[in-house]
Design a protein around this nucleic acid. Structure first.
Lengths: 146, 146
DNA sequence: AGCTCAAAAGACCTTCATGTCCTTTATGGG
DNA sequence: CCCATAAAGGACATGAAGGTCTTTTGAGCT
């Protein structure tokens, strides 16, 4: 798997809230999971992390739910990938050599390193805002599992 | 994980045999697993596949073991990755959208597709021979987990 | 204050890649 | 022909990611 399911769900969840928060109060987990067709409780744990990190607002209780924060749109995908542990995976040597680095490279190191850098550049350079910009709520269909 | 452990072990195993087959008869699984510090029986199953595919020669019984075949050095990493199921993972949509393709892309599709292509180019364009070329057996230390 | 709603927290289950062990099969040597 | 050797095969164990359920916590409403 290039990215874990957790990363995929995190991205879907943030995008959903980012796309639909306009003019609404809070969006409930129930709705998000149902529309995106994603496991509810598992998504719940991930949304929880996103709230703790300030990537989303999360409010308990009556009229509670999730909403965008000041940082939501500025959040790069890299932050989500770090949150879900996907970055350590990306950095780990293909041959699991613990001594593998630029000075002491495994046979694939120098071939793979540039690609790693491109991935990071992509993830660091793409924000939630970038993905949502100019999209209307109808765009949700393209982020659902269908 | 960029690549599965199976892929890493497969590559390590092939490289070990490719590097040390010169002037020797057969190389036993015991030795490979011990030197590479890799789980013996698990590696055994992977080497088995490599033998079945003709990427290596495998011989049972007395003086048996693994050796290079005519195709060993010509084998691209892509073949190993296909063998271990890593290519289907690379191709699967990050958002798990089943309808995601060039015509009906998920929000990340067009950003990720070029990177996928680069990965494939790297894997298809790099053979075991490329990795072994000009290396002496001492090179094994760089493919062991240490 | 008490009620209701919705997220948080934590226990538990499932699945799959990984890893181990034991038995079977095939090969060469005496 | 028998024995030792080494891979193949299949049964089983483990661990981590993914997924579910129930209880607890916190917030607003009346």
């Amino acid at each position: 798997m290039i990215f874990s399911k957790s990363f995929g769900y995190a991205l879907q969840g943030v995008l959903y809230v980012a796309l639909l928060s306009d003019g609404r109060d809070r969006i409930q987990l129930d709705e998000i999971a149902r529309i995106l067709m994603v496991p509810r409780y598992f998504l719940g744990k991930i949304m929880n992390r996103l709230g703790k990190e300030g990537i989303l607002i999360s409010v308990k209780g009556h009229n509670g739910g999730f909403g965008i924060s000041e940082t939501t749109f500025k959040t790069p995908l890299l932050t989500l990938a770090e949150l879900t542990g996907d970055m350590v995976q990306l950095d780990s040597c293909v041959l699991k050599s613990r001594t593998c680095n630029n000075l002491n490279p495994c046979p694939l190191h120098h071939k793979i390193e540039p690609l790693r850098e491109e991935w990071k550049k992509l993830l660091a350079g793409t924000t939630i805002g970038d993905l949502v910009k100019g999209r209307n709520p109808d765009f949700i269909r393209s982020i659902s599992a269908i």
